[in-house]
């Protein structure tokens, strides 16, 4: 097994466009779950809204910029759709409704019916959706990096934009949670009746948190779409949400930099363990299908182990943790 190869490949995964996209979506989850205590288990629905908002608009002849507007608007609308029936109820209802909505949306946009009636392209998805984004790429053609740590010009462009947005989202959340607005969020996370008794409109704050975090999910979906250059319905399975939760919890829910750090380490660990297994275990014992399945087993074990042994993740504060007693 080539250790250098495995390491560089893992590094490429850790800072690549997918890690950037997950970092942005995770910043959103951190705002919702880490700071407000909302169990949005349908973040993938927001990624989907962003991806298809952009894809359908561009496919129908709209500009890339209009596509972005449509993507963000769809995410906000989705937040209202999910929030109105559930945010006044117990936290668990949001969890159930969001996970269900994410799955339903995927089935609808990926169905032949969705292709015929919604312009989603059905099971094939929407192709060539980058529009003007591709032309804006200032990086000359070519391949950059060394060994397996190598990005094509376009990929590098998406990656740079992705991480810039991830940083911007993080700084925005940092500013928000350090303000009195963030203080109200934290009070809701801990005890919404207390916040209510002090005159805070809990529903409005939850809705703002859900919508803003959802918009970040949509931006994550856009980055993924720009990277693939097409929208593929099969990408948006519920597991995407849970991968993003693993990122948040690994980094530390309720810590500003947690999602960024979490995403880098998460993708490094995933790729590293997979490459190592691939290189060391013979194919007839562990087929490539099994290997792909093992990735999910690994994430599952990671989620459980973190919640049991280190619920504050790498950067969180144990004292402020939602997850204890």
């Amino acid at each position: 097994m080539d250790v250098v190869e495995t390491l560089t490949e893992s590094m490429r995964q850790a800072v690549g466009p997918q890690a950037a996209a997950f970092a942005i979506a995770a910043v959103g989850i951190n705002l919702q779950f880490g700071y407000t205590g909302l169990l949005n288990f349908g973040q993938v629905a927001f990624l989907l809204a962003g991806a298809y908002g952009l894809g359908i608009t561009v496919d129908a002849g709209g500009s890339f910029w209009l596509g972005l507007v449509v993507a963000i608007t769809s995410a906000v609308l989705l937040a209202f759709l999910l929030g109105v029936p559930t945010l006044r109820l117990r936290a668990d209802y949001l969890a159930i409704v969001t996970v269900a909505t994410g799955e339903i949306l995927r089935l609808v946009v990926g169905s032949a019916w969705g292709g015929d009636n919604l312009g989603t392209g059905g099971p094939q998805g929407v192709k060539e959706v980058t529009g003007v984004f591709r032309d804006l790429n200032p990086i000359p053609d070519g391949s950059y990096g060394f060994s397996s740590f190598r990005f094509e010009s376009q990929t590098l462009w998406v990656t740079l934009v992705g991480w810039t947005l991830a940083l911007a989202a993080t700084l925005l959340v940092r500013q928000l949670v350090r303000s009195p607005w963030g203080r109200v969020l934290r009070s809701i996370r801990e005890d919404e009746d207390a916040a209510r008794s002090l005159g805070k409109n809990v529903f409005a704050y939850k809705m703002q948190s859900l919508a803003l975090g959802g918009v970040m999910g949509a931006i994550g979906g856009i980055i993924i779409t720009l990277n693939f250059t097409s929208v593929i319905p099969d990408y948006f399975i519920p597991t995407v949400t849970f991968f993003a939760y693993a990122v948040v919890i690994l980094g530390g829910a309720g810590s500003v930099w947690g999602p960024l750090v979490g995403s880098v380490i998460f993708w490094f660990v995933i790729q590293f363990s997979e490459s190592s297994l691939d290189a060391t275990v013979p194919e007839d014992i562990l087929s490539s299908q099994d290997l792909a399945a093992l990735r999910f087993v690994l994430v599952g074990v990671l989620l459980m182990a973190l919640m049991v042994f280190r619920p504050q993740g790498l950067l969180g504060k144990k004292e402020e943790l939602l997850a204890d007693g």
């Binding site: 009195p180 109200v184 005159g199 803003l212």
Partner: peptide, 14 residues
């Protein structure tokens, strides 16, 4: 947290 009229509790002004 309990103080009223804190404009920083609105998302944009915050």
């Amino acid at each position: 947290l309990a103080a009223p009229d804190q404009s920083g509790e609105r998302i944009l002004t915050s």
